[in-house]
Amino acid sequence: MAKIIVDVMPKPEILDPQGKAITGSLARLGYSGLSVRQGKRFEIEVDGEITPERLEQATQAADSLLANTTIENYVVRVDQ
């Protein structure tokens, strides 16, 4: 089934406490020099073909619900 992917990330200027915790944990495990920011990935299954209208619909969904644009950015793309 065709899929649309929406990636949501905290904006660069917004603190990401979860990412910081993961970064700290990685360093303790010996993975030095890695800095993590944590986001979310939404996989949206679509009935039928992915049309420009479907992508527009997913973009609206991302803007209204999946992301909070005050603190997050999102990218909508077709799963290849």
Binding site: L15, Q18, K20, T70
Partner: peptide
């Protein structure tokens, strides 16, 4: 209220986690 845009801004996780 913030999510509903009745108030501006957002509330995120504590900086001390």
């Amino acid at each position: 209220l913030c999510e509903a845009h009745l108030l501006p801004g957002a509330l995120i996780r504590s900086d001390r986690r």
